[in-house]
């Protein structure tokens, strides 16, 4: 597995897309910090960008990389190594190279600006951490979708739909349910719904860090009490880990049975 991981990682990190991805975060971060001069606002803006872009890029790279490596995968499959090493290695290679672009691109502007060690360190760390989680989650989901669908167009379409659902439609349905059942107490229901979507979960974790918890008012107190304490934090990261582990398990299961 480390062998495959290593080469896939080197292959991707050298591609110009990785560099563009890195530069995007780097420049966005610099612009937000040096033009806005408000770290908290910069983090919120960066959060908006990250939570749309990270899952989208993970989705696109997961699908594209699988389809583009179709022939190379066959070559590897004919080599004396077990299948799970090939696919797990590839998956990790993609996720890690994307995460590295994200991590460096996002962190460097803040390092230059001198945010580390300030009050905002924690929210920045959580932003980076959840960005990396989202990369791993959506790469895994799209990689799995590509593995299931031999038809590139269909695979691509399904993966984009899943992204669209998670980052847009889900919240729409969420809001509709809240409006429909507004006579009932909805705090627990809301917490459960947000645990079920990694993008929402990441967003809430950062919002609570940025002290917007008080803004959430009376009901917000319930949320911040849940997500704010260590066990809620643990539960949130456990949910994110589960979100990563589940599609990875599906990849391993599917790849062990699939005909190539």
């Amino acid at each position: 597995m480390p062998k495959i991981l290593k080469y896939v990682f080197f292959d991707l990190i050298r591609s110009r897309w990785s560099i563009i991805y890195f530069l995007f975060y780097f420049i966005t971060g610099l612009v937000l910090l040096y033009l806005g001069h408000d770290v908290s606002k910069a983090i919120v803006s960066l959060m908006n960008v990250t939570f749309i872009l990270t899952p989208l890029i993970g989705t696109i790279f997961g699908v594209m990389n699988y389809y583009n490596s179709r022939e190379f995968i066959e070559l590897l499959l004919a080599q004396p190594i077990p299948r799970r090493r090939i696919f797990f290695g590839m998956y990790l290679g993609i996720s890690l190279s994307l995460s590295l672009s994200l991590l460096t691109g996002m962190m460097l502007p803040f390092v230059f600006y001198g945010v580390f060690g300030s009050d905002h360190t924690m929210s920045l760390i959580i932003l980076l951490l959840s960005g990396i989680f989202l990369t791993f989650i959506f790469t895994a989901i799209s990689f799995y979708i590509a593995l299931v669908n031999e038809n590139r167009l269909k695979g691509f379409g399904v993966a984009i739909l899943v992204w669209l659902f998670m980052s847009f439609i889900y919240d729409g349905v969420f809001l509709m349910l809240l409006l429909m059942f507004q006579e009932y107490p909805l705090e627990k229901f809301s917490i459960i719904l947000s645990l079920l979507n990694p993008i929402d979960l990441s967003r809430i974790l950062i919002m609570l860090q940025l002290d917007i918890s008080a803004l959430m008012g009376y009901t917000g107190a319930v949320f911040s009490k849940f997500f704010g304490n260590s066990s809620g934090m643990f539960l949130s990261f456990a949910a994110l880990s589960l979100w990563t582990a589940l599609p990875v398990a599906l990849i391993l299961k599917k790849s062990s049975k699939k005909d190539f």
Binding site: Y7, F10, D11, S15, R70, E71, L75
Partner: peptide
């Protein structure tokens, strides 16, 4: 294999 396609940036 019939088609020789390898990781492009290696």
């Amino acid at each position: 294999p019939q088609i020789a396609r390898f990781p492009e940036n290696l």
